[in-house]
Design a protein around this nucleic acid. Structure first.
Lengths: 142, 142
DNA sequence: CCATTTTGTTATCAAATGATAAGTAAAGGG
DNA sequence: CCCTTTACTTATCATTTGATAACAAAATGG
């Protein structure tokens, strides 16, 4: 079968995903946080708790820069560093109450736009969507 | 039905898509181009021909900045501006031969990683994947 | 034909980001 | 116990990016 046709779809699809999630998050990011800092918070929110080095690796950022941004985020009280008692070099990073509140609000606003998009959709279609997401998640985007 | 459960999946799914496409393009971007410039080329490649203002809008970039980056890309011979004969204010932007070559190589390398991921996959599963992509593309990421 | 709008350019400045060097403190391994 | 590695920090600098003001040229619409 034509695998390269699927690849074409993969390309335009990922482009569309980026487009949409950019549109969705466009006006929800608070002003006192930079783009990179927001991305970091988003990452922490999804994969809590994480360490500085894992953030550095996943975001393709150098340790010094990750450290700097995380320091700023901590100073702004959006996240907290907790030293691992087992290995006191490690710092576990998690959202603070303020950070949780912020991300909940942001995700809530994104959800509103998401819901709007799925307004007139049937139960069956919703089920199909869920299965489609699961499938792609496990087979391609893992 | 639980729409907010699907939203959770939507969130982690889009996070995964970003993650994977970052990983895929990580080592593929040529050194003489910045991140933003690469993103612009990617956009042009997918939606050719486009105008300066549409690029500006879709990439959430101001016109002056878009103009500047596009100028740099043109100077580096990756794309060309063609004045619309019907409306001589408009500039159609398309990849140059060099730009096409670059993006073909880049997409080729991404495709190699994509294929690797789908190595031991059956015809039926491939069909399912295609349908899943189509479904999400039309219902959610449009 | 003149005012306005659209489309894009140029210049400039502050802020964010990336890259690198040099350092600290804890853990691990012989 | 000492050497090395790991995890992270601090400092510094160049580059990139974002934001704004001021401009030009073509189209549009009375």
């Amino acid at each position: 079968m034509d695998k390269s046709a699927i690849f074409q779809k993969f390309l335009t699809f990922t482009a569309a995903v980026h487009q949409i999630s950019n549109d969705f998050t466009k006006d929800v990011r608070p002003g006192d946080i930079t783009t990179v800092q927001y991305k970091i918070l988003e990452y922490i929110a999804v994969s809590q708790p994480s360490t500085l080095s894992s953030i550095s690796e996943c975001m393709h950022m150098s340790m010094p820069n990750t450290s700097r941004e995380l320091k700023k985020l901590s100073e702004k009280q959006f996240c907290e560093k907790v030293t691992d008692p087992e290995d006191r070099r490690k710092q576990y990073i998690r959202l603070s109450a303020k950070g949780e509140a912020l991300m909940n609000e942001v995700f809530g606003r994104i959800e509103a736009q998401f819901d709007e998009r799925l307004l007139n959709i049937s139960e069956d279609e919703l089920k199909e969507l869920e299965q489609a997401i699961d499938l792609l998640h496990t087979k391609v985007f893992y």
